[in-house]
Design a protein around this nucleic acid. Sequence first.
RNA 1: CGCGGGAUGGAGAAGUCAGGUAUCUCGUCAGGCUCAUAACCUGAAGACCGUAGGUUCAAAUCCUACUCCCGCAACCA
Length: 519
Amino acid sequence: MFFLTTAIDYTNGSPHIGHAYEKVLADVIARYRRLAGEEVYFLTGVDQHGQKVQQTAEKEGVSPADYVKTVTARFSALWEKIGVEYDGWAETTDPRHITCVQSILSDLHARDQIYKKTYKGFYSVRQEQFLTDRDRDEAGNFGPEWGEVTEIEEENYYFKLSDHTPWLREFLEKSDDTILPAFRKSELINALEKNTGADLCISRPKERLTWGIELPFDSDFVTYVWFDALINYISFVGYTPDPSLPDFESVWTGRPVHIIGKDIMVPAHGIYWLAMLRALGFSDEKMPQLLVHGWWNRSGEKMSKSLGNIVDPSELVDTFGVDALRYYLVRDIHTGKDSNFDVERLVMLFNTELANELGNLCNRALNMSVRFTESVISPGGPLTADDTALQQSLIDSTAAYRKAMDNHEVSMGLEALNRHVVHCNQYAERMKPWELNKNPENKERLATVLHHLAESVAHCAVLLSPVLPDAAAKLADQLKLPKLTDHKLDDLKWGLVHSGHEIEKPSPVFPRIEVKAAE
RNA sequence: CGCGGGAUGGAGAAGUCAGGUAUCUCGUCAGGCUCAUAACCUGAAGACCGUAGGUUCAAAUCCUACUCCCGCAACCA
């Protein structure tokens, strides 16, 4: 089983382009793995507890539970809108999750992995948090942004993180595929080097915070939100068995892939979570891989004048469509790195690669079949060097696509796919089917050329399907091949379009996006 | 000396781990085609690969020093 998760989004505001990116990336990877013939379980959801939720709810004059419900609905509505299809949905206020967290807390407490101690430090009342030396300004004082700062003593529960850091360090040192992409590994190991054996505070006294999961062994405290949230990765796949949840052993069969942003690798996922799993008895072979993605940055507000200041993914979909957004989000960023969000590039990539190249290829190929061969596609006569070169291009592109996608490099996968599309357009230009059509003697040759184009479009539709499932279905529809998208990668052999296959006059699958050059 | 990432033709990127005539997309210029979504195809101009040294037959790629950008720095969910 290929078990894939995303970070669960914190329900403290509306979803933005970064949230959408992570989910689309995960959705694409999940769909790709299914296409590759693997069994997939894709889990995502929302993180609903914690101080910030409690504060925001208070500010808005509603209960945290109601507030969280509203925000959660915004997230799930967006996923539906942009075609993110998950198998499991995690909400941390779910009773099944709470049961699991509490059972884990009890277990760790019973095994002395959790203990109580007093912490003395400087506390900011306004920010409701303890401060550390790095919060001091250059003069060594706490700045006015913290408001009143007092030194207080507080009892809390701690998880024995220090028991596991030596193992973690060693595990990470020898593993090349736990942190993806690899360049982030050194960052995590460095962070670990600086760990001076500190343990992790996993409780909050109820005087300060009530919106959380109560500690099963001390009702004066709730669980620290990270300790609660991280557990979603196991609670919602039945770590504590529940008839409404999957069977844990059949989901967590190897190393799951957790897709997260670079901001929550250190310390939450890279340190806390791996250590927590270790404490629960997970072996090295069951440790998750962390696929760490970068950020969409926004450079300047220049484009906002001409195209409107749009960053809400839902509005982007309304303006440009799901295909354009999904394609852009995985095409214009290399997994792991940062990129600048630019609406003009979104439009450009859709128009050039989808409308002009692939969409137009489909359109011209099918139109010619309708006009020149009575809508019937047949293999025609003997193959020339041009034909075999085209078939080889398809084989090469498919191989490059698979290699890239296996490494979660969606952008490179799409680039590989594109190479074949370009090859096809060049092929059409050289073969000139419209010329062949002028002389009846060329009928067989004409059939061969058009067959090669139709066959290529069919393959491209399948390869594109993880990224743009709807568009792939439309391409299949144009080709009159309704079962096309049922194919697995290994079934992709030359001959998807059978001899004598009939099609109809096509209409554009990717209508060009026309942008009015506003003032 | 806190940590990490980055600096590549006008714009955005790949390539750097495993050195070997600089790649892709957009843009610009010129031409071709007409089946197609004013789409497609061909050709051209444009980069001393941040700076300065070094290693090597050979460096965007390895080594040293430096400059400038961005993020993070562990009770911030």
